[in-house]
Design a protein around this nucleic acid. Structure first.
Length: 310
DNA sequence: CGTATTTGACCAAG
DNA sequence: CTTGGTCAAATACG
């Protein structure tokens, strides 16, 4: 019966992990060169991008090793799915044979739960963004207390390259159309991303626009719903903003990079890190900043970074 | 015809 | 039980 496919998988995972580590080393090397020299000037890859790539490699490696270590079902079933037993229908035998309902499909389908170690980031955009990646929609769900359904996407190269990246897109707010895109994991596929950039706004030059983000806790106190919604309250234009000072909780570490800013949490997991407050930032062309919400929100891992791009 | 989306059922976790 | 995430058969698309 079940032929032992584990050695193969382990070997494969090991190779993938090594490949990821090599990638990470290469990225780090680039970053080192970049940091030692003058500023990247323009056009070239930003330090922020490199950091993201490095984090991606590390996260992927961790994910791979983690999945290898756990004795349970691998998340990448590859193509060795065995549904060869031609005993009529695939599933849904509820009406016919009720007795054998559970055991039959338990091992046939992988476990659904997501890796806790996977990286998560959130982006809020006024319109649908097109990151250069190829996504494949695989689900849509109506979310409680949400006006719009949530759409689930996975990387097109999940099966042919084992890419683990997924994303969720959900519209939040109609007035100014707002979309929340949640990314899980990083791409380790060699995608030829076509359209590099996103964006918005042809409506007006965003030279001096500033955005106001308000995280109000009133929304969440009522329902025991764990999702901590961040609402874009208002978006207004100001000519001058002193300086993008990011007021965060004292136990948050800020890392300011030339490009997008990222706020990481050292690891404290209080449920109330960001309860309420108004955070603002100015920006020129592309302003983005991130913050870490930690355990207060849903089921995010320790290193989750929330990022808002405009 | 192959590939992407739709959609209800399935599954794990709270 | 409910709920969010996923699978996969059916369907749409090119």
């Amino acid at each position: 019966m079940e032929s032992i496919t584990w050695p193969e998988n382990l070997l494969h995972d090991r190779k993938r992990a090594i490949r990821e580590l090599i990638r990470g080393r290469a990225f780090t090397n680039q970053l080192q060169v970049m940091l030692s020299g003058p500023l990247p000037a323009d056009g070239s890859v930003s330090a922020g991008d490199l950091v993201m790539k490095i984090m991606g490699s590390l996260s992927n490696t961790i994910s791979i090793l983690d999945s290898s270590e756990s004795d349970e079902v691998s998340q990448i079933p590859a193509s060795s799915r065995l549904l060869d037993s031609p005993s009529q229908d695939g599933r849904k035998s509820e009406d016919s044979g009720q007795s054998s309902k559970t055991s039959a499909y338990k091992d046939r389908r992988g476990c659904y739960k997501r890796r806790k170690t996977s990286h998560t980031s959130i982006k809020l955009t006024p319109n649908l963004i097109d990151d250069g990646h190829a996504w494949r929609k695989y689900g849509q769900k109506v979310i409680l207390n949400a006006k719009h359904p949530r759409n689930y996407y996975r990387c097109t190269h999940k099966f042919d390259q084992g890419c683990q990246a997924t994303k969720q897109v959900q519209m939040t707010g109609d007035e100014p159309a707002m979309y929340r895109t949640t990314y899980h994991g990083f791409h380790n596929c060699k995608n030829l991303l076509k359209a590099p950039q996103i964006i918005l706004d042809s409506t007006h030059p965003a030279t001096d626009s500033s955005y106001l983000l308000c995280f109000d806790s009133d929304r969440i106190e009522k329902s025991s719903d764990h999702s901590l919604y961040s609402h874009l309250v208002k978006q207004e234009h100001k000519q001058n903003f002193p300086m993008p000072d990011y007021l965060m909780s004292p136990d948050l570490t800020t890392i300011d990079s030339p490009g997008p800013m990222t706020v990481l949490s050292p690891g404290s997991d209080h449920g109330d890190v960001i309860s309420s407050g108004v955070y603002s930032c100015t920006a020129s062309t592309h302003s983005s900043f991130g913050m870490d919400m930690m355990g207060s929100a849903v089921d995010f891992a320790d290193d989750d970074v929330f990022q808002f791009d405009f």
